[in-house]
Each structure stands twice: as structure tokens, then as C-alpha cells.
Amino acid sequence: MKTDDYINKLIDREKQMEHNPYLATRIMAKIETPKQMKRGVFQYLAVAASISLVITMGVVIGNSYVVVPEKYAGININDSEMENFALYNTDSNE
């Protein structure tokens, strides 16, 4: 087989390949979609600044919380001075 024949056979095979039947739809969709605004540097800076601000506020709020120590009140319970409820439960005391 000649070299030219090999080349022509490959070209024929590639020529027979068919494109996606929805290619035209895809192209028109791309054309009709309005161009999205290019994201500038300032937009990225604004997003970074917002995130930094939120983190800083969180840290500040966290640090502003102060634990107030409770006044300690000691309770001295003398069991012998407590009223004896058992006295009221016997029939003779009614």
C-alpha cells in the first residue's frame, strides 16, 4: 500500500466523523448569553475585606465577654435548729 493511500484513508475516516447534532443550539446559547462582567481585582478585595471584618468582629465580641465572679454566700445549716416535722405526724399532737 502506498503512503498516499494510508494518508487518504485516515483523512476519509476523519472526514466521516460527525459533530454533535446539538452543536448549533450550543453555539446560539453561547451567543445569546449576555457577557458576564469580568470580576475585577476590587471585587476580590471586597470579598476578602468582608471575610476579615467578620472574623475580626467575632474575635472582638468573643473577647468582650467577661465572666463576672458570683458573690460567694456560705450557708451554715444547723440540723439541730431545724424544725422537727416529725412532731406533727404523730396522732397525740393533734
Binding site: 483523512i11 476523519e14 472526514k15 466523523m17 459533530h19 454533535n20 452543536l23 450550543r26 453555539i27 453561547k30 451567543i31
Partner: peptide
């Protein structure tokens, strides 16, 4: 196809050409 020899690349190129 003659340039890129790949169906997917040729479709992408076709889209670029028409745009």
C-alpha cells in the same frame, strides 16, 4: 478536524469560529 484531529476539540473550535 483537519487541524486538531479530535472531535471534541473540533466542536469547541467550531463554536469559537462562529462566535
Amino acid at each position: 478536524m483537519g487541524f486538531v484531529h479530535s472531535k471534541e476539540d473540533a466542536e469547541d473550535l467550531t463554536q469559537d469560529v462562529f462566535i
